[in-house]
Design a protein around this nucleic acid. Sequence first.
DNA 1: GTACCATTCAAACAAACGTTTGAATGAGGT
DNA 2: ACCTCATTCAAACGTTTGTTTGAATGGTAC
Lengths: 223, 223
Amino acid sequence: MKAPVDRVLPDTRSRILDAAELLFVEHGLDATSMRMITARAGVNLAAVNYHFGTKDSLIQEVFRRRLTELNRRRLAELDRLEAAAGGGRIKPSRILEAFFGPALELASDTENGGSTFMQLLGRTYTEPNAFVRQFLAEEFAEAIGRFLGALYAALPEVPREEILWRFHFMMGATSYAIAGTDALQLFAGRFDDADPTRFKPRLMSFLLGGLRAPLAEYPDEAR
Amino acid sequence: MKAPVDRVLPDTRSRILDAAELLFVEHGLDATSMRMITARAGVNLAAVNYHFGTKDSLIQEVFRRRLTELNRRRLAELDRLEAAAGGGRIKPSRILEAFFGPALELASDTENGGSTFMQLLGRTYTEPNAFVRQFLAEEFAEAIGRFLGALYAALPEVPREEILWRFHFMMGATSYAIAGTDALQLFAGRFDDADPTRFKPRLMSFLLGGLRAPLAEYPDEAR
DNA sequence: GTACCATTCAAACAAACGTTTGAATGAGGT
DNA sequence: ACCTCATTCAAACGTTTGTTTGAATGGTAC
């Protein structure tokens, strides 16, 4: 039926992926039409369906080609930490660095479209589209599981559920820092400098402060 | 031309707004069609255009009716704090409570659709749609300006740009906590309890820890 | 040189989109 | 009783959507 060669990437495929990535950030997944993509990529309208099958498959591939590599790097860093610790405890700050570091580095790569993609990823975490959610969850499952386990081991005195929540909060803060800076102009004109390479130490400091914050009390009824 | 009465809200208007709010959360703004909205609201297709003009105006009204009240409550709380302090310093934790407290309370109101709306709001912060961004920015401008000013005054020893960033991070963490819990199943099956009333103390503790974190050093080149 | 096959292309497809229209409806004021 | 006017309704409007089709194109292998 449809079996495009995969050993050699014709330029068309990459051009489509790059154009789609850019347009998805500018207009969102739904608001980006096939015609917009093929026009910017300078290819024929039918090329997307020929190379990727459907628009959904194209979306999936836009994420997959970057995410696989990102999470591979994260897990490699974690492997290094665990090997170096040799069964001993790992400092939480190192774990955070291993998880959020690669993301922030990718977010500051403006030459190969990494920053574009990270903006896209940040705003797609809250995407309602069912198949995108499903796909992202699968792509992240392993990395999140591993890093949660590492944090549990690094902070044995903190309840696991608390760590779980704080990891969630940290991902939120990071995604917004990357995706939301120019996306929403809530802080318009207030940031001198939104370059991820520059705010990385700020963010890491914030995340670590949040992770280490004293445990709150949990009344049965708030207020 | 088009001047519907505004002193009395016919049921149709509210039914449309409620249905739209729900569907926007489920499918996103673009993926929700007029026909889906009117079908769920049980009204005629033309009713939306009659009552709101265009789909964009409807979107705007969905946000406006809740946001105006939310930010009014936030500013009222801040007014109280500033009056009580009488020119003296206000504890940062109180300021955070005044800003994020009302949002979390609205997020736990499942009876009047408040939680639905807060999920919608959380994921709309990163919405690429130009007119939505513009509108949200205007709606938030006053509150953000006031609260930033209050934090500057409460933490005079912290550089303003640092506070700005941390406020951004805090908004990100909060939005995710509200919008991302069930939206993306990254943490699927891991949360026992996603009720906002229950995670509020957790989040507040995390935010305060992040706000108070030691300042990072800023090397000219990271790594 | 010719047969093959992946790729490109212009054109068309049905379906769904937001919006408009003009007639029907029905409660309220005079 | 009659006029008024906000509201509802079924139907249609012209666009745009993602996808499909069948013919052209052009390099590679024999």
